[in-house]
């Protein structure tokens, strides 16, 4: 019987990608607390393990062992479905991200991407658009005013910012001519990063990513000053943990998407002059990609602890009257640029 090498490779890769994204998300929570402590001149978690490094494990254990409360007036099925959808969609996106070139193992070239589909960007976009259901269904099923308002805010915010995000990606696709993430990263080799050609597009994409992630300054769906906890007010134990954790997984994935689309992904400029073997280049490329992702995650946290929350009308104003026209202008400018240069 022929050994199904590809199946084994892909299974291992899926497990690795899954583990890395969950671990990164886990330590993002630690990073968030340390960084917020730094910004506020505090020490931050330092009791569990050296430098408090075991804090995420302690948090996880606490969430798992806490008493789980499902409100009696809630809809039990949808109450459980909400966080499940959130977590599932958060983990699905990483399937199309190219984590590196390829590794040569035993004469076989093993791709460092779970699947390379021709519609990679559209796939990412489709999964993101399903993600809003987790918040909406969970918020509705809680049978709580604050949850419902949080869910309404989340959905209207996500719909509004998805448009501008899509338009900024349209301009990117116009310059790259492909929707496959692997090809987009390959085109950026040797330092031709898309950020040079699409600075405005990246700027719009970045702001929309903040809004899609429900992070400050756009964290109106869960702003504690007005809505207690927003859509997850009624949640406790690991279901709350899944909602919070999904946000960090999403942050990791959107950092990866931004690095891949605009910052060359695993590309290290001028590495071809060093004459390294392809395996070393692949591993270095992955590490470099990871460093870019960590930088983006740091940026997300930096903004969160620096910029105050928007008011709701300001949020809508920014989305509909500033970002969408800017994105349309960006598309037109890109079209004119392509017309006169190619």
């Amino acid at each position: 019987m022929e050994i199904p090498y590809e199946l084994i490779e892909k299974t291992i890769l899926v497990v690795i990608v899954f583990t890395v994204s969950l671990l990164t998300a886990m330590y993002s929570t630690y990073g968030e607390r340390k960084i917020s402590a730094f910004f506020q001149d505090r020490i931050g978690p330092n009791r569990a393990g050296p430098f408090g490094l075991l804090q995420p494990l302690a948090d996880g254990a606490k969430l798992i062992f806490k008493e789980e409360i499902i409100p009696i007036s809630s809809n039990k099925f949808l109450f459980i479905l909400g966080p499940s959808i959130s977590m599932m969609t958060a983990c699905l996106t990483s399937a199309v991200i190219p984590w590196g070139t390829y590794l040569e193992i035993g004469g076989r070239a093993v791709e460092m991407q779970v699947t390379d589909i021709n519609i990679g960007i559209l796939y990412v976009f489709a999964i993101v658009s399903i993600g809003v259901y987790g918040v909406m269904i969970g918020g509705w099923a809680s049978n709580n005013k604050y949850s419902l308002m949080g869910a309404l805010r989340a959905s209207s915010q996500m719909i509004s910012y998805e448009i501008a995000m899509g338009m900024s990606i349209v301009a990117l696709i116009m310059t790259t001519g492909t929707m496959s993430l692997k090809e987009i990263v390959a085109q950026q080799a040797e330092g031709h990063w898309n950020i040079i050609y699409q600075p405005l597009g990246f700027f719009i994409f970045l702001i929309c990513a903040f809004a899609e992630l429900n992070r400050t300054p756009f964290d109106l769906p869960e702003c504690e000053a007005e809505l207690v906890g927003g859509y997850h007010t009624e949640y406790s134990s690991m279901k709350l943990g899944l909602y919070l954790f999904a946000e960090y997984v999403n942050m990791f994935v959107s950092s990866a998407v931004m690095s891949a689309l605009y910052f060359g992904g695993y590309d290290i400029p001028f590495i071809e002059y060093l004459g390294l073997s392809s395996n070393v280049v692949a591993v270095l490329g992955f590490l470099f990609f990871f460093a870019k992702i960590v930088l983006f995650i740091f940026f997300f946290m930096w903004i969160r602890w620096t910029v105050p929350r928007f008011r709701y009308d300001q949020l809508m104003h920014l989305g509909w009257r500033i970002l969408i026209p800017m994105a349309i202008i960006n598309v037109i400018l890109t079209g004119v640029f392509i017309l006169f240069t190619k």
Partner: peptide, 20 residues
């Protein structure tokens, strides 16, 4: 994928909005 983006990401979200 267009089916997901248009119907699930657009039309159905608006329906859900109305329901809420």
């Amino acid at each position: 994928v267009i089916q997901i983006i248009v119907y699930i990401g657009g039309v159905l979200v608006l329906t859900l909005f109305g329901v809420m």
